[in-house]
């Protein structure tokens, strides 16, 4: 029953296991952020395959570096939210419209189905859900280049 640093392990099949402080192994866990949009990197939970919370961290900062790295890797694998860096063109200025964009994960197209698919988070951050259900993030609307900003503004 000696307390150890918990560990996140991955087996050959790629399944994540959580070895908690008591040494109990939980197979098939997920790492989940409670506030993925407003406070990423805080309030991270380890959730069992059945969906029950096993462990939780208020913040990741003070964690053991190896554990931190494993958690970050596990989170990165689950979270798929490409960041829009530029808007190249739009097919038209009303919905539905196809936007040619450049993201941090490469160039792609985004089909915007309705204006409600754009959600404002905080004063400057945008979340855009495309027709495939992928969520794109605009980290700072005012930080985009002029052309991208103008193109996006027509939909806001």
């Amino acid at each position: 029953m000696n307390d150890r640093v918990p560990r996140l392990a991955r087996d050959a099949a790629g399944v994540l296991s959580w070895i908690d402080a008591r040494g109990t192994v939980h197979r098939g866990v997920h790492l989940v952020q409670a506030f993925p949009l407003t406070a990423p990197g805080e309030q991270v939970s380890v959730v069992s395959a059945e969906g029950a919370e096993i462990d939780a961290f208020e913040r990741l900062d003070g964690l053991d570096p190896a554990l931190r790295a494993a958690i970050d890797a596990a989170l990165a694998e689950r979270e798929f939210m490409p960041v829009i860096e530029r808007v190249l063109s739009v097919s038209r200025h009303w919905v539905p419209s196809t936007l040619d964009i450049e993201t941090d994960r490469g160039p792609t197209q985004l089909v915007l189905e309705s204006e409600e698919a754009i959600r404002r988070i905080g004063p400057d951050k945008l979340l855009i859900r495309d027709s495939r259900g992928i969520c794109f993030v605009v980290k700072s609307h005012s930080g985009l280049d002029r052309r991208s900003r103008k193109l996006l503004e027509r939909f806001l």
Binding site: V32, F35, V47, E53, I121
Partner: peptide
């Protein structure tokens, strides 16, 4: 605070299902 919110949700037995939502508490 966020911690307060999570604590209340845990006590209300809501935390687990909220984590299952795509954006959690967001």
């Amino acid at each position: 605070t966020r911690a307060d919110i999570i604590e209340a949700a845990r006590a209300a037995n809501a935390h687990d299902f909220i984590l299952r939502l795509p954006f959690g508490y967001d």
